[in-house]
């Protein structure tokens, strides 16, 4: 085992949402960890529970209808689920911060950029307005915003999507958090801006040594950004491994399917592979593997029993009956 300690350790986390009087597990007993200084990719289709998981780390699950029904979220050895709201507020934006998918709507339209960065600084640091202002401008410079003094007093609508995401990153990193959760930070941006933002995040990570939980459905982004990857499907972790193994020796049929659906520049193919079917709605699969209906390698056993996570080699797990030893 490596000597670096885990900054975040999630065990058996279950999150339920109430709909039509019925409670449905949107996240169903997931476990994973993030080491200090590491970037963990969390991959999966829309609705697989990755965003809900990230919100639960922040303690921001909309409740009702949602609630954490079981498990622990340990951050630096302390279970965040035991924290009172008041203590949780000291963690948010300070120890753990988050950037979101939609830069266009994630900034408050009626406040200046400066005010919105100052806000998080003043909440968690003992500084006055002038110090906050200087630090905010420094942060804007850090995230590569030109003319930071001018942008400081601009309003969000005066900035492009890419610029707004840079501002969000500035807000996220302003208090030097130990963990940054990035929930599809580049999905809403066009490709060139995407690359810029990814480079920026990679850069800042090296400078600040922040751990990153990078949520995405884009495996190209994973290859560029992440050290390890957790693949989620329908509220469960189906495969967990380091990024090299993910691309060179993937095990789970779902992961194989995801990789197969990336177009390759070197091959000429008639039709791009896609995983057939749709993600089952949370709570609809009663028994067996949740991926069974879409799986190319489905066996009888898959429809009967829910597969556990099988240990492949050091640090590589996969939830599939193909790898059962008996």
């Amino acid at each position: 085992m490596t000597m670096t300690k885990n900054i975040l350790d999630i065990k058996d986390l279950t999150i339920n949402f109430k709909s039509d009087g019925k409670e449905i597990s949107v996240v169903d007993g997931i476990s994973f960890h993030i080491k200090a200084g590491e970037t963990l990719g969390v991959v999966g289709e829309s609705g697989c529970g990755k965003s809900v998981t990230s919100l639960s780390i922040m303690g921001l699950i909309p409740s009702p209808p949602g609630r954490v029904a079981g498990g622990t979220i340990e951050f630096e050895g302390k279970n965040l689920l035991d924290f009172k709201e008041k203590d949780m507020r000291k963690v948010r934006g300070n120890d753990i911060s988050m950037i979101f998918q939609e830069p266009m709507t994630s900034l408050n339209p009626v406040f200046t950029i400066g005010k919105q960065i100052n806000e998080v600084l003043l909440l968690h640091n003992d500084m006055n307005q002038t110090e906050a202002r200087n630090r905010s401008i420094e942060m804007l410079k850090l995230v590569g915003i030109p003319r930071p003094e001018q942008i400081y007093s601009n309003y969000p609508y005066q900035l492009s999507g890419g610029m707004r995401q840079r501002v969000m990153i500035a807000i996220g990193l302003a208090c030097q958090p130990k963990l940054l959760i990035a929930d599809e930070p580049t999905t809403a941006l066009d490709v060139t801006i995407q690359a810029q933002i990814l480079n920026l995040m990679q850069d800042l990570k090296e400078k600040t040594d922040t751990s990153i939980m990078f949520i995405t459905h884009d495996l190209g982004v994973v290859a560029e950004m992440c050290d390890r990857v957790v693949v989620m499907y329908s509220g469960q972790v189906v495969e967990e491994t380091d990024v090299d193994t993910l691309f060179n020796d993937p095990k789970h049929p779902y992961t194989l399917g995801l990789l197969g659906s990336i177009p390759k520049a070197t091959e000429k193919i008639e039709r791009l592979y896609s995983i057939r079917g749709q993600v089952p709605q949370a709570g609809t699969v009663e028994k067996g593997c949740r991926f069974a209906d879409r799986c190319d390698k489905v066996m009888d056993r898959c429809r009967e029993e829910d597969p556990p996570l099988f240990q492949m080699k050091q640090g590589h797990q996969c939830r599939c009956w193909l790898y059962a030893e008996d």
Partner: peptide
């Protein structure tokens, strides 16, 4: 949500 995520 952003404001809440700041710890406000």
């Amino acid at each position: 949500r952003t404001a809440r995520a700041k710890g406000q």
